Amino acid sequence: MSPNQVATALDGAIAYVSQGLDSGSGWGRYSDWGITAVYEESSGLVAVAIDAMDGPLVRLRDIELIARVPSEVSSDIHALAHREGASVRVNWSGDPEVTAWGVSMGAMLKLGPSPEWDRQDTMITDALFVVAELAEDPYGAAPVIQWRDVREEAPNAGTWPVRAEQDRLRWDWSPLESIGPLRYGMSPDQVAAALNEEPAARHGRYPFGRPWEGPGEWILREDRFDTTGVTAHYASGRGTYPLLGAVTVQGRTGPQVEHEGIRLIGLPISMVDAALIQYIEERDLGLVIGCGGDRGLEDLNMYVRATRAGDAAISEARFCRKDWEDHG
């Protein structure tokens, strides 16, 4: 199906967010339907992603796949695959993927119905469905990468161990200046030395080749330190050396950080949200909502984020220097 045919099949739906549809190759997000359609120039529609919150409920045989507890759907998929002789593997997000059916499962945070989209403490399932030609590696296929590139995501083996509170480091936070042993403005070498750890993964980019940047060498964007449980984010660009601009303390494994007695890391996300809102209301402060619904305190450039721990959602946080613009 072409983009026009898909729009007709969806009662004239409009892709409010899209890329490359005019060329016949790209993707379109049909928000009113809760789906994203991915197209390949020669083949038309090749993949459909179903949103957990807004998408239609999809049934495979007798299994409801969408908006359910991930572990329950995984159990049902394994049982059906066993009956039909299909092979189930784990995809990049730690969820089941079945080549024979062209389905790759995923999960997203469940949100409440309030205008502020209250964050719940549970994950619910979404899914990507692809044509047979892409089923061997759905998220590695070029058309899907145009829509969602997960190649820099830390692969998950399907387990989400959470470090116990008593086993976590304790870090102090000086807003806009430092977090634990890390001070904003450090070089990557200084960050690694302060943590006494080499990065488990490094991510970056090449310059875009635009007039204000031009071609050049690879630019470091972030380092992930798995033992400590943090990610260092660097401000960098063509002709400038990367310097520490923000630190994400990972929810499952990172150090515990407190603000005014509020524990920020590794707790049910609704608990941290409620504590922050109470703190703000009692002091008549401002609440900042960042990309993806992250909650922050006005003028502190800190955002509490939700991360997955199996079927649950727990808190992590990103701590930024004053001039850092966080984009999720």
Rank of each mutant, 00 (worst) to 15 (best):
R305Q: 14
D226Y: 11
E198V: 05
G245M: 00
C291G: 07
D149W: 13
P175K: 08
L195Q: 03
A86I: 04
S93T: 07
H259P: 04
L45Y: 13
W171C: 08
L220V: 04
P56E: 00
R205H: 15
G44T: 10
F319E: 07
I277M: 04
D226G: 08
E136Q: 06
D323Q: 05
R263G: 13
R318K: 11
S71E: 01
A232H: 10
P215T: 04
T159Q: 08
A275D: 12
H203S: 14
G292M: 00
V191Q: 02
S25T: 12
H203G: 11
E298C: 05
P188L: 00
T122K: 12
T240M: 06
A100G: 13
L57Q: 10
N91D: 11
S315T: 13
L21H: 05
G94D: 07
V90T: 15
D226S: 15
G34I: 04
A200W: 14
M123E: 10
W27H: 13
L57E: 02
E298V: 05
S187R: 09
S18E: 11
S114D: 15
F225D: 06
D118I: 07
A100K: 07
I289K: 14
P207F: 07
L243V: 13
T122F: 11
E197R: 09
A13Y: 10
R83N: 13
A194T: 07
E97M: 11
G106M: 00
G26H: 09
E217Y: 02
M108S: 14
W147H: 14
T240R: 14
N301G: 06
I265F: 08
D126W: 02
V130T: 11
G106Y: 06
D11N: 15
G296Y: 03
L21I: 06
H327F: 08
G290F: 08
S71I: 07
C320F: 05
P3N: 00
E116R: 10
S23D: 12
P70C: 02
P188W: 00
